[in-house]
Simulated assay, not measured.
Amino acid sequence: MHRALIQLLWRALAVLSLVLAVIGAVLPVMPTVPFLLVAAWAAGKGWPRLETWLLNHTHFGPHIRAWRERGAVPRRAKWIATVMMCGSALMMQFTTLPLFIRIGVPAVMAAVAIWLWRRPEP
């Protein structure tokens, strides 16, 4: 019973992450790849067939495998993520959000961008 529940939770996380990745593919404000990576990771814990499907997917499989093997991120993905973060940070400055949020969130985005650009490329 306990093992079946754990497997069900891993599968639920994999499905939730996959749904969020699909939403991210449609909505420009939401990322896709991080959710795909989580989906593949969770599937590996409780749904090997889904993990295999993701790893062999023609579009997403090579990126997931590159991340797993070397922590690699394609240059195009780095540029897209950086441009989206810059755009979000810029738009945030024209809102009525508190100053600490308008400064803090872009600072976190800048840290993420630095980390991202330090990742190897496939």
Rank of each mutant, 00 (worst) to 15 (best):
H2P: 14
H2G: 14
H2E: 12
H2D: 14
L5D: 14
L5C: 13
I6N: 06
L8T: 09
L9P: 03
L9E: 03
L9Y: 14
L9K: 11
W10E: 15
R11S: 12
A12L: 15
L13I: 09
L13Q: 01
L13N: 04
L13F: 05
A14D: 05
A14I: 01
V15F: 09
V15C: 11
V15S: 07
V15T: 14
L16S: 15
L16I: 15
L16G: 11
S17C: 13
S17M: 09
S17W: 02
L18S: 11
V19T: 07
A21N: 03
A21R: 02
V22I: 13
I23S: 12
I23L: 15
I23Y: 13
G24D: 12
G24T: 08
G24Q: 10
A25W: 08
A25E: 10
A25T: 06
L27P: 14
L27R: 05
P28M: 08
V29P: 05
V29K: 08
V29Q: 11
M30L: 15
P31D: 11
P31A: 08
T32S: 11
T32Y: 08
V33K: 04
V33G: 03
V33L: 10
P34V: 13
P34F: 12
F35G: 06
F35N: 09
L36S: 02
L36T: 02
L37R: 08
A39Q: 00
A40W: 02
A40N: 09
W41H: 03
W41N: 00
W41L: 06
A42D: 02
A42P: 04
G44C: 08
K45D: 00
G46T: 03
W47H: 02
P48Y: 00
E51A: 00
E51V: 00
L55Y: 00
L55H: 03
N56S: 06
N56W: 01
H57L: 10
T58N: 05
H59I: 15
H59C: 02
F60P: 10
G61T: 01
P62C: 06
P62M: 09
P62R: 06
H63P: 04
H63F: 09
I64A: 12
I64R: 03
R65W: 05
W67E: 03
W67R: 13
W67L: 06
W67N: 08
R68M: 04
R68F: 03
R68A: 05
E69R: 10
R70I: 11
R70K: 15
R70P: 07
R70F: 07
G71V: 10
A72D: 10
A72M: 11
